[in-house]
């Protein structure tokens, strides 16, 4: 067996239960392989538990462990960093807890905070900088305005108040059930200094933010708002959003 073949076989043995041993690998080899297989599984599940501690608390230890084991089997890690072990776990939980969407909402919040925690350090554009960058703008320039946002900014539309749930779990006073939102809403996560923070907002703002994060212009933002906002208020609503993003330190630069 070549080294490539041996390593492929060994990895398959680690990732999979009940695989037949190659010729010449005896019971002693099997016992050793069990140790590597168990170490791999427990490392992955513990990494998920450390990344999603409040989701684990909310889902319950047994249910979380089963979900984590399922995720490790269906999404074996590819990259060199254990930091990304939680990639796709929100979607896994959404499938496994289809009747409890609060579990996936909470997991998304923890994952976004995890990513924000080590996102690139950047200095946000402040109001004075923005004013300087746009001081000569005419109407056409405003319509074409495009922005770059900080890499620590994330948003998602949610069906449950995962922020209230996160805070309750942080206080170790978990509620009996998650609070559904009366109106559809969204959650924004970003980092202030070294600390990930979050806020609840309307889906309209999240969708507007999505337009501009993905490269849309201020004009595109206004078009996106037209369906939900009376015509005269579109520019004012978009301007208010822009002011909020500046104040919260979401904007990196005018591009």
């Amino acid at each position: 067996m070549s080294l490539v073949e041996l390593q492929q076989e060994f990895m398959d043995q680690v990732l999979t239960d009940g695989r037949t041993l190659p010729c010449g690998w005896d019971a002693r080899m099997a016992a050793g392989l069990d140790i590597y297989r168990n170490a791999y599984r427990s490392t992955m599940v513990e990494a998920l538990r450390e990344t999603f501690p409040k989701t684990a608390l909310w889902a319950g230890d047994h249910a979380f462990s089963q979900a984590a084991a399922h995720h490790v089997i269906t999404h074996p890690p590819c990259g060199w960093t254990l930091d990304l072990v939680g990639e796709g776990f929100t979607e896994t939980l959404a499938g496994l807890f289809a009747n409890d969407p609060d579990v996936a909402d909470l997991a998304w919040l923890e994952w976004a905070m995890h990513l924000a925690f080590t996102a690139r350090d950047c200095v946000a554009l402040d109001a004075a900088g923005f004013a300087a960058a746009t001081s000569s703008y005419g109407e056409a320039d405003w319509a074409a305005l495009r922005l770059a946002f900080l890499p620590s900014l994330f948003s998602r539309e949610i069906g449950s108040d995962c922020i209230a749930l996160w805070r309750a779990l942080a206080d170790e006073e978990p509620p009996a059930s998650a609070r559904s939102l009366e109106e559809p809403a969204a959650c924004l996560v970003w980092r202030e200094g070294l600390i990930p923070v979050f806020r609840l907002t309307e889906t309209l703002e999240a969708r507007g933010l999505g337009v501009m994060i993905t490269g849309g212009s201020f004009g595109d933002l206004c078009v996106a708002l037209q369906a939900a906002v009376p015509g005269d208020d579109v520019a004012k609503t978009a301007g208010t959003m822009l002011g909020k993003w500046l104040a919260d330190g979401h904007i990196l630069k005018v591009v």
Partner: peptide, 22 residues
């Protein structure tokens, strides 16, 4: 040790065969 194949990473320090090829 080794930790990865072309497709997956074990995040564990896996043993090598002590061969001339390795």
């Amino acid at each position: 040790c080794w930790t990865r194949t072309s497709a997956h990473n074990s995040h564990d320090l896996l043993p090598l065969p002590y061969t001339a090829e390795a």
